Amino acid sequence: MRISVTHQVEIPATHKLELYKKAPEFGPKILFFSGGTALRNTSRELIRYTHNSIHLITPFDSGGSSAVIRKAFGMPAVGDIRNRLLALADQSITGTPEIFKLFTYRLSQSKSQEELHSELQHMATGGHPLVQPIPAPMREIICNHFKHFLKIMPDDFDLNGASVGNLVLAAGYLHNNRQLDPVIYVFSKLVQVYGVVHATINKDLHIAVRLQDDTVIIGQHCITGKEMPPPASPIREIWMTDSLDDSTPVHTAVSDKTKKHIAEADLICYPVGSFFSSVMANLLPDGVGEAVAANRCPKVFVPNTAEDPESLGLSVVDQVRLIRRQLALSGAPNGSDTLKYVLMDMEKASYTYPIDTEELESMGVTVINCPLLTQSGDTYMDARLLAEALLSLS
Results as ranks from 00 to 15, higher is better:
residue 138 M to L: 09
residue 174 L to R: 12
residue 375 Q to C: 13
residue 143 C to I: 03
residue 232 A to G: 14
residue 370 C to T: 10
residue 219 G to E: 09
residue 295 N to W: 08
residue 43 S to G: 14
residue 349 A to N: 08
residue 305 T to C: 06
residue 42 T to E: 06
residue 314 L to A: 10
residue 238 I to K: 10
residue 56 L to R: 01
residue 208 A to R: 15
residue 64 G to L: 04
residue 221 H to I: 00
residue 350 S to Q: 13
residue 156 D to V: 07
residue 33 F to T: 08
residue 393 L to R: 11
residue 126 G to W: 07
residue 102 L to Q: 09
residue 228 M to V: 15
residue 51 H to C: 03
residue 276 F to P: 13
residue 43 S to F: 12
residue 107 L to S: 13
residue 134 I to H: 15
residue 392 S to A: 05
residue 192 Q to V: 05
residue 323 I to T: 01
residue 123 M to W: 03
residue 82 R to Y: 00
residue 186 V to H: 07
residue 269 C to R: 06
residue 67 A to S: 15
residue 319 Q to P: 03
residue 121 Q to A: 07
residue 14 T to R: 14
residue 94 T to F: 15
residue 35 G to W: 01
residue 106 R to H: 10
residue 11 I to E: 08
residue 171 A to M: 04
residue 40 R to W: 08
residue 70 R to F: 01
residue 85 L to G: 08
residue 115 E to V: 01
residue 75 M to F: 03
residue 216 V to Q: 14
residue 260 K to A: 14
residue 317 V to F: 01
residue 5 V to W: 11
residue 321 R to P: 07
residue 331 G to V: 06
residue 316 V to D: 09
residue 252 T to C: 13
residue 176 N to S: 14
residue 316 V to Q: 10
residue 353 Y to S: 05
residue 30 I to F: 11
residue 360 L to P: 00
residue 170 A to H: 05
residue 107 L to Q: 14
residue 239 W to I: 01
residue 307 E to F: 13
residue 200 T to K: 12
residue 337 D to I: 00
residue 10 E to Y: 11
residue 392 S to P: 13
residue 94 T to N: 13
residue 241 T to G: 03
residue 212 Q to R: 15
residue 300 V to K: 12
residue 58 T to Q: 01
residue 109 Q to G: 13
residue 299 K to I: 01
residue 79 G to C: 11
residue 217 I to T: 05
residue 148 H to L: 07
residue 303 P to C: 04
residue 25 E to Q: 08
residue 303 P to R: 04
residue 298 P to A: 11
residue 363 M to R: 11
residue 87 A to W: 04
residue 375 Q to T: 13
residue 382 D to Y: 05
residue 8 Q to Y: 06
residue 339 L to E: 15
residue 380 Y to T: 06
residue 226 K to D: 14
residue 77 A to S: 15
residue 28 P to Q: 04
residue 341 Y to G: 08
residue 386 L to M: 10
residue 359 E to R: 13
